[in-house]
């Protein structure tokens, strides 16, 4: 379970998060929606400790993760439970695909023999619909959709309990988006993992989410089960879903 309470973060004079309260139950898939630049990525990075929140607490299974020191073994143990799919894939372009996928298994506390790590990598690649011959290519040789899938394979390679997806369908065509959404849903269900996805793609929301939370103005404007989203009665959510220019969300930002 992930609990954020009263999380604040500002960059210079710009207040990005102004008191975010959010609870993500174990095994649920939560999608956070919101316009560009509303701080969705910042929120996610705060949980991972990539960005330190100014005030507020973030607890994962009761442990306050904002107190973990960089490089400490507690923090390593905490990160070992996570998998993250970055927006642009964030694959290491100096390493071939299989070493990207098996990155965690080739070094550190989860280290395994090379041949075994490669086998796991190929199995994970197959899981995301890629053939074994992709394994020895370099990330730059792959299309955007394939890079996303490799990123997904890397995120799930070490069987994480919690997976974060940062805009998993951005920059993909509608069909590839559908494929990625379906994969995410399957993987989350099959692994029983807790998932947090940030997106502004409504088709992703409907495909992936158990629960939806809308981030606007630095706070969670609305949250609830995905089935209640259409009848939320919240003007922000309604405007966001319909993609209308008229409503409380300013179009000039």
């Amino acid at each position: 379970m992930i609990e954020l309470s009263d999380v604040h973060k500002s960059f210079g004079s710009k207040d990005v998060l102004r008191g975010v309260n959010l609870t993500l139950p174990k095994g649920e898939s939560m999608v956070i929606i919101g316009g560009s630049g509303t701080g969705k990525s910042v929120l996610l990075k705060c949980v991972l400790g990539l960005i330190q929140p100014d005030t507020g607490s973030i607890a994962v299974d009761g442990q306050d993760v904002t107190r973990l020191r960089q490089g400490s073994s507690e923090r390593d143990a905490f990160l070992a439970r996570f998998g993250m799919l970055f927006q642009g894939g964030a694959l290491f372009d100096s390493l071939p695909v299989w070493q990207n996928v098996a990155f965690r298994l080739l070094r550190g506390s989860l280290k395994r023999p090379k041949s075994e790590a490669r086998e796991v990598a190929i199995e994970k690649l197959r899981r995301v619909g890629l053939t074994p011959d992709v394994a020895d290519l370099f990330p730059a040789e792959l299309s955007g959709g394939m890079q996303k899938r490799v990123g997904l394979a890397r995120a799930i390679a070490a069987e994480p309990e919690i997976i974060f997806f940062d805009e998993p369908t951005t920059g993909l065509d509608p069909i590839m988006s559908g494929v990625i959404n379906e994969l995410i849903r399957e993987i989350v269900v099959e692994m029983g993992a807790t998932a947090m996805t940030i997106t502004h793609d409504m088709s992703s929301v409907r495909a992936i989410a158990d629960d939806v939370a809308m981030l606007h103005g630095g706070v969670i404007q609305w949250s609830g089960p995905v089935k209640d989203m259409d009848a939320s009665g919240d003007p922000y959510v309604t405007q966001f879903i319909s993609g209308s220019a008229d409503g409380p969300i300013e179009t000039v930002r």
Partner: peptide, 14 residues
């Protein structure tokens, strides 16, 4: 810029 540094951190690599 391409978040590879963040990715390293999330993969428990300093």
């Amino acid at each position: 810029v391409t978040e590879q540094i963040d990715a390293l951190t999330t993969l428990s690599t300093n």
